[in-house]
Design a protein around this nucleic acid. Structure first.
Lengths: 200, 200
DNA sequence: GTTTATTTTAATCATTTGTTTAATTTTTTA
DNA sequence: TAAAAAATTAAACAAATGATTAAAATAAAC
């Protein structure tokens, strides 16, 4: 016996929602991708919206959950933490490069609920993480450090459509360029330590 | 006599498409926003798709067109060019912070045509720009310089929904934080010069 | 000022799309 | 193995949505 119908639907929903976003995804797409009858989507998940919120929670954890256990560790140096986070992110995002753009876009569309909001708060207001990251550059606010830290790491994957959809580079070239990008990111993140917000 | 019906529709379409994306926008939203009869959208623009492509072209130019004339200038130093680009981008994106996320997301959905693709190529394969940017760090490929250059500048605006939709910060705090961010960005871009892709 | 062309409107069409229903099949329980 | 419960299916519903039409109103041309 293989995968349950309920799981087939969830797996299909992940793919379709990530590919097309909430408003672009149709329940029929999901049913077809799952290879099951359309009515089963509602039978198991009640509505498109309910199913979406489940996937959205999952994806938020997948995207931001990565950093919590690493940054919150008590026995590693900040530099080690940074390198480990960069490593983990590149592993993850080479597999699912669409993840950051999907999550941020749906957050903007406010396709969220209080559970999702709380999940984000737990991550971005984690005291250990805030404390450790602050060591990187005490002159910068928590927000600026967090935002630039994440931004430097994930932007290569967010910007992918600019270069790939316009055929400036293709999938293979992207994968090759990302390898070099990892070293660049690692150095750029560390150069955050040298920033002085006072200087114009 | 004020704005023509055709222009009213275009102005409304800009707002609605940017807010909801192609698949989330309804022609009825646009008509209502424009204060005109629904049928006029098709009368003047034939289809939702045609209207969208017009807005999309416009927005690509708005987002990426900024950098061409500045970077291509022959009589300014690279540092001056960078500062001017950062300046112009922050002016633009404080007014329309949703612009980068909108454009990149629609590029990923492939809601584009060959005209839009060509526009992107003209910008990112402009020889002067490539030449000048390359001076910033000859060890990095054109792609890496361009991608990181743009990324560092626009990510603050792309990441806005992460922090605002989750109520970690509000609109006013965002605006305040962006002011400091401008100085950070200016320094970060210049630190691209110090990156050595050989180093692990 | 009459005719012609353009613009606007309300109504309607044809699909699409999320969801439900009622019947059927399969699985579980006792 | 008979009865009950759960899962699946095909069909259909109701609302949403992009688009069209035919008539009415307005503006332009002569």
């Amino acid at each position: 016996m293989g995968i349950s119908t309920q799981d087939k639907i969830k797996i299909a929903a992940r793919k379709i929602f990530i590919e097309k976003g909430y408003s672009g995804a149709r329940t029929r797409d999901i049913a077809e991708e799952a290879g099951i009858n359309l009515a089963l989507v509602n039978y198991y998940y009640r509505s498109k919206d309910t199913l979406f919120k489940i996937i959205m929670e999952e994806k938020i954890d997948e995207l931001f959950g990565t950093i919590i256990p690493i940054l919150a560790k008590k026995d590693t140096s900040l530099i080690e933490k940074i390198d480990e986070v960069v490593d983990k992110y590149f592993d993850l995002l080479l597999k699912v490069p669409e993840l950051p753009l999907f999550v941020i876009n749906e957050l903007r569309q406010e396709n969220i609920n209080s559970k999702i909001v709380n999940r984000l708060k737990v991550i971005f207001e984690n005291k250990d993480i805030v404390k450790y990251l602050n060591e990187l550059n005490p002159n910068l606010s928590n927000y600026h450090i967090m935002m630039n830290f994440i931004g430097i790491i994930i932007f290569p994957f967010i910007s992918k459509p600019i270069f790939v959809s316009s055929s400036i580079i293709d999938q293979n070239e992207f994968s090759a360029l990302i390898k070099t990008q990892k070293g660049i990111v690692s150095q750029l993140v560390k150069s955050l330590a040298l920033i002085n917000p006072q200087i114009k």
